[in-house]
């Protein structure tokens, strides 16, 4: 069975290769910082499942200290020039889309079809992780297709991968850091404090006020946690179920469905949802770290108003 753990090992090998590339790059003034940063990250992928929690925690702290004091840098980019790329684009034409579509195709094929493949009664892929395992497999297949079609120098994909991860920098690790922060918040009971605060100030007999407190509370708490999944149980147990369902007689299903989507409005507005908002800004080389959030705020606010209206009209029917 192909497990998620194998995909992590693949990721570990890739980050280890980035670390080695940095160590060998003497044009790079911060080479040892990059090597240590991506090296520690590689260890969490290769051995994270087997190391004691506190050792993983120390690896994380090492990465934090490197990024926080002095930071990591970018080496010289060994890539093609614009003229070379234009010539190559003319040469290969639409064939260039084939590896890109291979990623999407194999990922979807794996999720939809390979899910059911069994060998000797054992599923080929770890069933619960089918999407992630398929994505991992898809990148490998696409890379092989790319090698065969484009015949690049052997190390080109690693060189190019390092170029891209250098553009993203520490932001690549931020989503996992925030997930860890969410766990600490949950363990310390931050959610209950906030739900109690919100619930204390709601006029509980005014349906619109209660609905708005729930939807806006979902969005606000998601802004803080960076994740609507973390906000949902807290806000629904604190406000949704006791006030909308039990006190005012609303429909729990309508409330939950639209409540979660109100949380997603919060996701669009917060740097805490780094993989959606901060990482793409880095990936697209935007000088303003918050540029994506700024574009999303009007959509998010209008959607939050819309969700509140939808819930108000449908939850009490």
């Amino acid at each position: 069975m192909i497990r998620l753990e194998y995909v992590y090992i693949l990721g570990g090998l890739m980050f280890a290769a980035f670390a080695v590339m940095n160590a060998l790059d003497r044009t790079h003034t911060k080479w040892w910082r990059n090597t240590l940063f991506w090296g520690a990250y590689a260890v969490t992928f290769l051995f994270g499942s087997y190391l004691p929690n506190v050792v993983n925690g120390v690896l994380v702290i090492i990465m934090v200290l490197i990024a926080g004091f002095g930071g990591i840098g970018r080496g010289a980019e060994r890539t093609t020039s614009l003229a070379e790329r234009q010539a190559s684009a003319r040469h290969f034409g639409n064939l260039l889309f084939v590896p890109a579509l291979t990623i999407a195709g194999v990922a979807v094929f794996g999720t939809v079809v390979l899910k059911y493949v069994q060998i000797g009664g054992v599923p080929l892929f770890e069933p619960k992780q089918i999407t992630l395992v398929s994505l991992g497999l898809a990148t490998v297949v696409a890379l092989i297709v790319g090698y065969v079609m484009l015949r690049p120098p052997a190390l080109a994909p690693i060189e190019e991968g390092r170029r891209l991860i250098d553009q993203v920098g520490w932001a690549a690790v931020l989503p996992q850091m925030l997930a860890a922060l969410g766990a600490v918040f949950a363990a310390a009971g931050v959610g209950k404090v906030i739900a109690t605060l919100v619930a204390a100030y709601i006029p509980i007999d005014v349906p619109l006020a209660v609905v708005a407190a729930y939807t806006i509370g979902m969005a606000l708490f998601t802004v803080i946690m960076g994740n609507a999944f973390a906000a949902f149980p807290v806000m629904t147990a604190g406000i949704g179920l006791p006030l909308i369902v039990h006190h005012l007689g609303g429909n729990a299903i309508v409330m939950s469905a639209i409540g979660m989507l109100s949380g997603f409005c919060g996701t669009l507005m917060t740097p805490m949802a780094a993989n959606f908002n901060i990482v793409p800004a880095a990936l697209l080389e935007l000088p303003d770290r918050y540029a994506v959030i700024k574009v999303q705020v009007p959509t998010a606010i209008l959607m939050l108003i819309g969700n509140t209206a939808l819930m108000y009209f449908f939850v009490f029917r």
Partner: peptide, 20 residues
């Protein structure tokens, strides 16, 4: 770590970018 699996696409995407 599952959040970071998406980075596995970088070598392919980079390869395609250098090829135009």
């Amino acid at each position: 770590r599952y959040i970071a699996i998406v980075w596995l696409v970088l070598p392919v995407i980079g390869l395609l970018e250098r090829s135009g």
